[in-house]
Amino acid sequence: MEHVAWMAWTWQTGVFFVVIAALLALLTTLAVNRPEIAREGVLGITTTRGDRLFITLLGSAFIHLAWLGLVGQDLQYATVLALLYAAAVFRWV
């Protein structure tokens, strides 16, 4: 751990990156085992699962920031909102 001390890891940020890495690994596995056909959704652009994950992550970051800026505490509600947003993106985008 001494070698990465300068990276200032905390378990919370560790979990955050492990979740993202797991999502990427899951998508890779899916791409190998169940190849998909890109589809066109409500945005009028063709998207793959990877595109939808990117849109989800970017949007979720803004949902959390907007919650922090406009509401303040209780970020868990923002997380719930982000999960609903993720479901909507994977269903309709």
Partner: peptide, 12 residues
């Protein structure tokens, strides 16, 4: 790696 480090710094 730098991006991860910045995320780590941002909460400390």
């Amino acid at each position: 790696v730098p991006l991860m480090t910045v995320v780590n710094y941002s909460v400390q």
